[in-house]
Nucleic acid binder design. Structure first.
Lengths: 197, 197
DNA sequence: TTAACGTTACGATACGTAACGTAATATAAC
DNA sequence: GTTATATTACGTTACGTATCGTAACGTTAA
């Protein structure tokens, strides 16, 4: 009996050691948080991961791609805390979490990925789809729950509201002209989300 | 009669040829707009400007510094159009000009400089002081004139208002998830600047 | 047999600097 | 005023280094 449409084409030969991939990503992530994107070189990753350089190239085409993979692996969209009862509180908790991440060393990684995305189209696409879009989706969902609950007045333009919330956060992260605090998030929300009228 | 405190200590030796500096900056600017920051190498600048590499190093310490100098030379703060009579119209014109710049090839330069600032402290400082701060100052001044004229209600936090205006613009520039149009600016203003009550 | 991985090696690009010669300008000496 | 001299700008050439991306080949695990 022969399989006519195998969903998994049966991998042949020696399988990839999962520790290899993990070691590369872990090394890239560590380098990224410490020294920023410029310190994430194939050479440095290879040494830190105790893997040969050609092996890294067998997984990813260049250093920024490894950095992006490492970044996306560890940093998902900020998840809404489950505990808050009201969607408004959940929204606030979600953005507080994002602000915390931006203020922490992880914020440097985010900034580095934004920077990397400016010069590499592929990275930009991945970053938009896997990070930007996910964060917007998560926040949009909570906003709509707030609207459904009549906790806030429905905004005229939902996408504009998202730009008004995320824009200033990224702006401060990248320009560094002012700190990113939970209080700042609260200010943003107060300004952007019209309280229930 | 001897000058006791000469304001210009009389430069000695061969003066710098102004065309050298101009050629370097022009070349850097062209490279920056086309290929982004990674294409702005000392090597490429030297060839395009028809200047030797050591000469470039005599002016600036590294390639990103040249790029920043070229950027700041050509892209100042958006100036308020003189024609509009009311400060509110001037504010709108100023931000329209910024949006136009962000949407044009010059926008790529701005994005490239933001990216560069993430990995080079010196550049970050220059960029904050010479570009970010200047734009904020210009807009803040117009906002205050609007307030003085009672054209708009005074915002609770002026700096927050500036973040709400500039943040989304940079956010769209850097993420590229939506276009930067004059209509977007108008939407921003409507949302952020409470109309006269 | 097939593919993963290491080792070694190679050419290419860009870096930043040094050394040296020449050109252009100021100041001082005559 | 003309001439010497110091000083600086710029080009040319060269050097050593870092990192890149790839190729070749052997070894190991399925």
């Amino acid at each position: 009996m022969s399989r006519q449409a195998p969903s998994q084409p049966a991998p042949r030969g020696r399988p990839r050691d999962p520790r290899t991939r993990a070691a590369i990503l872990a090394a890239a992530r560590a380098l990224l948080e410490r020294g920023g994107l410029t310190s994430v070189t194939i050479e440095a990753i290879a040494q830190k991961a105790e893997v040969s350089r050609p092996t890294i190239y067998r997984y990813w085409p260049n250093a920024p791609a490894v950095a992006m993979a490492a970044f996306l692996e560890t940093t998902g969209a900020a998840e809404a805390a489950k505990s808050p009862r009201t969607p408004l509180a959940a929204l606030r908790a979600q953005l507080h979490a994002l602000a915390d991440a931006f203020a922490a060393p992880a914020g440097r990684s985010v900034a580095a990925m934004v920077a990397a995305a400016q010069s590499e189209t592929e990275l930009a696409k991945a970053f938009r789809n896997e990070f930007i879009a996910r964060n917007r989706d998560a926040t949009r969902a909570l906003l709509e729950r707030c609207i459904a609950d009549k906790a806030i007045a429905p905004p005229e333009d939902m996408e504009l509201s998202l730009d008004l919330i995320f824009g200033p956060l990224f702006y401060r992260l990248l320009m560094g002209h002012a700190p990113i605090t939970r209080g700042f998030v609260d200010q943003l929300l107060a300004a952007v989300i019209p309280a229930r009228d």
